[in-house]
Design a protein around this nucleic acid. Structure first.
Length: 951
RNA sequence: GCCGGCGUGGCCCAAUUGGCAGAGGCACCAGGUUUAGGACCUGGGUGUUGUGGGUUCGAGUCCCACCGCCGGCACCA
């Protein structure tokens, strides 16, 4: 028998070296072990997955990854970064005794599968299922410690039953402004019945027809049908949420043009929750940039509503600067403002009409191009400025947006640059209300004056108030802006001409999509078009089978045609006979479906209790995993890891749903995700030849900083991994070439989890070498026998071990896996020296080393653990604890500086006093020489740290 | 334009939070082992910490200005 075998490339490899092949066999064996032994099944306190003894006396930890969409392209090496990070953390916490819940399911409704179905004619479920099984296969090879029982898919009927159920909770709720809480709609009806709340026309509730009653309640429901401007995307055949439209006015998916038009659509009153969504951000442990993005998106601004009277009634404007009201010399309405027609005089009718149609025809993108000159037209009417009692002209202009504030502004050209430009353009009056500083006039090289005709631009800032007084109010003189605001707001309230108020940028959430592959709404309509919610017993409303998945074909630029959703074509599904309590009647089903965000708004709750058929989650189970940790704590997932791209989409929608469920008493947590961590992205280099074509990145060679492909010079760029850049590297390639543990280690070692960085396959080998050295320190590469001894650990190695334990534990707790790995390599390098000097590896050293390694490289750790004679998994072994006595040494090397430059070092005992340090430093020969007889003007002595002489 | 984030050896990245610029990996160089080879062993750090000022006994770290890259928002009243 030969002890050497030949490898493909060259040379001989010892039979028991830790190669990719050995790693693969170890890894698959342990993956099977974990699956067969249900190692990662997390016990619940109650419900179908209850195991009270498993729960007892352990702290819990809920670790969550953002819900993945099962893409047909499969995973590349960038995808698992976060999954590996959460797995390492979860395994680390299990070793610290926590009951850890870690699972991964699939957000499997969505446009790509449906687009695929349209082009191939294959049912999206077929494609979705095969994508999921491919992704499960790829993820299984990663060795993630997931509870497989909890891997739910949003497309599972038993899952979307509860998505529909939650929709109905939202539909049957309203927002009570007195408590800022969602309440059951029945409470509202009770208020109507008792007369405590007036109906819109003041009639008694009992006298209203059913249609009138539903009109009254629909005005309050948190999910409602509205006939409002929507983002219509003919290229996708569906409308989109504001959050799904890019700044360029195109669809986030597919980059098709998006048009504004009115359509009757399901909408959610998320805007009523603006204040809570904003305020509760302060109570969350989230990265500041994400909080900022949500704050910006919600866009709270404090100001005042001011009422201007006009021939068509009061025109309400919103302003953040009511203190400049005396300078409001004209009013501008959005072209879509409802009062425009009534305000337009005969003479200006033609101009206004032309302007409105011109504004409607131009896209949002055009309208928002701020380099464009201001446009607008006069309506012919005037409004009365409430503080001056003077008539001011009413204009319409497209720089005023209907979707923000009231769709009307008071223009103060002296204090707002846009208004200033507009006034100059159309020769409107500009009246100063604040005197700019002398500096400002100097800068613009003009003589100080409140005559704005001399001003080159508006003045924004603090300044003495001028021209701002009437008979009952004066702001004039030196005062702060906030002081002036308070004065004017009080005056407006007193005169009934306005009040201090708050405006938000966040608008209600457009919730229906004209597609097939989504959750059907649990809503039907009767002959009169009245909507009815279906009872829980009729859930789920299943998607019907469909022969043809195509939406009707529309030109991407066709902004006028009405969409016909695919479900509308399934006649025997759309029309249905149901008994909703008053005998069998014929109804028409809602033919829109929910957007992809619906499932991801609550999936984390289903992970908790995935097999519960009676409830979406058992309240006791929810409270255990997600309940508040203490008074004032929001509750929610203990650690949520994902990319930054969901900052204002998923993360805002899910918070909204969760708050509604909290208000209605279905969950005990106020927020879904208490701690959020944003992982970075792995990007990759890509290469182009001189014709600009991308070439396969893996075949590019580098020599002295120049890159060649087929001996042709190519240029390097840097970007997302993808087909178009030909720079994809898959986990499968890494498993084959290096093994999973090496791959996991490399992903974690290449930098901090939150940082984006380039992938470089050539660097992976460093981690494999580390594991090979570690393996070789434990196992004889030729015989495969254990080489561990019972010898005591030498003092230096023992100290190194405990320093390592302390460092690694702290690093893992803080998710700093890159530095934890470097500390483990350091320790192993120390051990390697010990072994190379002819000694063997002490058992007492390798045990804690393997324990520390196991969160990162669980397969290799399990294998060595078993070789050391253990019969059960290493998963629940306690994480090593450092002995504090071994962390401190007797002596320390202290640098001696002269003027901040290190000139010498001295070895001195720990805790040496300032005097001792000073004496030792001044008697050091190098320092005596460097000082050359000079007496230091000052000496800085920091115990155990340094001595610095200033001369 | 506004708001964030990041700039450290050739590359990916550390630095006890104001105290010796270097932990770890890749690459590179030299030597060892080897018939040879290296995924082995030993040794080697290659630098104006983006630039310019400031604070300080002392700045990669704090402050100001600028440059570059990345991200978010953008006529938001």
């Amino acid at each position: 028998m030969t002890s050497w075998r030949t490898s493909d490339s060259a040379g001989l490899i010892p039979p028991h070296r830790y190669t990719a092949a050995l790693a693969a066999s170890i890894e698959q064996r342990w993956q099977n072990y974990w699956q067969e032994n249900h190692t990662f099944d997390a016990p619940n306190p109650a419900g179908p997955l209850a195991d009270p003894t498993g729960v007892a006396n352990r702290s819990k930890l809920f670790v969550l990854d953002m819900f993945p969409y099962p893409s047909g392209a499969g995973l590349h090496v960038g995808h698992p970064l976060g999954y590996i990070g959460t797995d390492v953390y979860a395994r680390f916490k299990r070793m610290q005794g926590y009951n850890v819940l870690h699972a991964l399911g699939y957000d499997s409704f969505g446009l790509p599968a449906e687009q695929h179905a349209i082009s191939t004619g294959i049912h999206p479920r077929v494609n979705t299922d095969s994508n999921i099984s491919n992704m499960r296969r790829q993820l299984r090879r990663l060795g993630l410690g997931h509870d497989e029982r909890r891997s739910v898919c949003t497309t599972d009927e038993e899952f979307y039953k509860w998505t529909q159920w939650i929709f109905l909770q939202i539909y049957n709720a309203w927002f009570d402004p007195s408590t800022s809480r969602a309440r059951p709609i029945n409470d509202l009806v009770a208020q109507f019945v008792s007369g405590e709340r007036k109906t819109s026309e003041g009639k008694a509730w009992s006298t209203l027809t059913p249609a009138q009653k539903s009109l009254e309640t629909d005005a309050f429901r948190l999910a409602y049908l509205s006939d409002a401007p929507v983002n219509w995307c003919p290229g996708l055949g569906t409308i989109l949420a504001n959050e799904e439209v890019t700044a360029e006015g195109r669809s986030d998916i597919g980059n098709y043009p998006v048009f504004r038009r009115n359509m009757r659509q399901w909408t959610m009153r998320i805007s009523l929750f603006s204040d809570r969504l904003l305020g509760d951000l302060d109570r969350l442990d989230w990265p500041e940039p994400i909080k900022l993005m949500q704050r910006n998106w919600i866009g709270r601004s404090e100001g005042a509503r001011v009422s201007f009277s006009s021939s068509a009634g009061a025109i309400d404007v919103f302003t953040t600067r009511p203190d400049t009201l005396f300078g409001a010399t004209f009013i501008v309405l959005s072209p879509e403002h409802p009062l425009v027609i009534a305000l337009t005089t005969e003479k200006h009718h033609k101009n206004v009409e032309a302007y409105i149609s011109q504004a409607g025809a131009s896209s949002d993108a055009d309208r928002q191009n701020d380099s464009r000159a201001k446009t607008g037209v006069f309506t012919g009417s005037y409004a009365i400025n409430p503080v001056t009692n003077q008539p001011i002209p009413i204009w319409i202009a497209d720089y005023v947006l209907m979707g923000y504030g009231t769709g009307a502004i008071m223009a103060v050209p002296s204090g707002d640059q846009r208004d200033f430009e507009f006034a100059r353009q159309f020769d409107l009056q500009i009246l100063a209300t604040q005197m700019p500083s002398a500096d400002w006039f100097n800068q613009h090289d003009i003589t100080p004056s409140d005559d704005c005709t001399t001003w080159p631009s508006a003045y924004v800032g603090e300044g003495d108030y001028v021209n701002s007084a009437n008979d009952t109010l004066s702001l004039n003189g030196q005062r702060s802006i906030s002081d002036a605001k308070n004065l004017i707001n009080a005056w407006l309230t007193e005169k009934n001409a306005g009040e201090a108020t708050v405006s938000y940028r966040l608008r209600d959430w457009l919730f229906s999509r004209q597609r097939y592959w989504g959750e059907p709404f649990p809503i039907v309509y009767d002959q009169d078009g009245l909507a009815y919610d279906l009872p829980e017993s009729m859930l789920p409303v299943l998607l019907p089978e469909l022969a043809d998945f195509s939406p009707q074909l529309l030109d991407p630029m066709d902004s006028d045609s009405d969409p016909v959703p695919p479900l509308a074509r399934v006649a025997d599904w759309v029309t249905t006979t149901l008994d909703l309590g008053d005998g069998p009647r014929q109804y028409r089903r809602e033919v829109n479906v929910m957007p992809q965000w619906a499932g991801s708004c609550w999936y984390e709750l289903r992970y908790l209790d995935p097999t519960n058929t009676r409830q979406f989650v058992d309240p006791e189970v929810e409270k255990y995993w997600m309940g508040p940790a203490s008074d004032g704590h929001t509750g929610g997932v203990d650690l949520y890891v994902g990319g930054v791209e969901h900052a204002v989409l998923h993360l805002l929608y899910a918070r909204f749903w969760h708050k509604v469920l909290y208000d209605l008493g279905h969950v005990s947590s106020e927020e879904p995700f208490h701690r959020l961590f944003n992982q970075g992205y792995i990007q990759a280099y890509a290469y182009r030849d001189d014709r600009g074509q991308t070439v396969p990145a893996e075949k590019v060679k580098e020599t002295n900083g120049t890159f060649t492909f087929d001996n042709e010079k190519v240029t390097r760029e840097y970007g997302k991994m993808g087909k178009s850049l030909k720079n994809i590297v898959t986990p499968d390639e890494m498993y084959d070439e290096y093994g999973t543990d090496t791959f996991r280690l490399y992903e974690m070692a290449m930098g901090p989890l939150e940082a984006s960085r380039p992938w470089n396959t050539r660097d992976v080998v460093g981690m494999q070498r580390f594991l090979q050295r570690l393996w070789r320190n434990v196992v004889d590469e030729e015989t495969g026998l254990l080489t561990v001894s019972q010898d005591a650990i030498p003092e230096t190695l023992l100290r190194q071990l405990h320093k390592c334990i302390a460092g690694v534990a702290a690093d893992m707790e803080a998710l700093r896996f890159n530095t934890a790995i470097s500390k483990l390599i350091e320790l192993n390098n120390g051990l390697t020296q010990h072994v190379n000097s002819g000694l063997s590896t002490p058992l007492d050293l390798i045990k804690p080393m393997v324990q520390m390694l196991s969160p990162l490289c669980p397969h290799l750790a399990e294998e060595i653990w078993a070789l050391l004679g253990h019969e059960t998994t290493i998963t629940f072994e306690p994480f090593p604890i450092a002995d504090p006595n071994l962390l401190i040494s007797d002596t320390v090397e202290v640098p001696i500086q002269i003027n901040g430059k290190v000139r010498s070092r001295i070895l001195i005992h720990i805790g040496a006093s300032q005097d001792e340090l000073l004496t030792a430093a001044t008697s050091d020969p190098k320092i005596i020489a460097a000082l050359g007889g000079l007496v230091p003007a000052k000496s800085i002595v920091i115990v155990d740290r340094l001595v610095n002489f200033v001369v």
